[in-house]
């Protein structure tokens, strides 16, 4: 299972760009400060992102711990996955 912040960051960035490419948006070189809605993510693309990240990382932070409005930026999304994975490893 991927747990380091770098691993999670890489997976999240790749998955974000994969979905943006499918939706015919330009790829993004992420700094982490990008607002998810500003780079083109609608509720539909967000649903796809969460499904794909659950398959890649084995967790869905939005099932229990977070709601969509808790997450604004790419870094906040990465933190949500990191904390959810840490909590599930401890629990």
């Amino acid at each position: 299972m991927l747990n380091s912040r770098d691993d999670i960051t890489a997976v999240v960035h790749d998955t974000l760009n994969e979905i943006l490419k499918d939706a015919e948006f330009d790829p993004v070189s992420f700094t982490g400060a990008e607002r998810i809605t500003d780079i083109g993510f609608t509720s539909l693309l967000l649903a796809r992102l969460i499904i794909q990240l659950e398959a890649a990382l084995g967790a869905d932070p939005f099932e229990e711990r977070y709601v969509v409005s808790d997450i604004r930026t790419v870094d906040e999304l990465i933190d949500a996955y990191r904390q959810t994975l840490q909590a599930s490893a401890v629990g």
């Binding site: 509720s43 539909l44 796809r48």
Partner: peptide, 10 residues
């Protein structure tokens, strides 16, 4: 699956 996830998030 995507439709259900979108609905669950909302």
């Amino acid at each position: 699956a995507v439709a259900k996830k979108q609905e669950a998030l909302a």
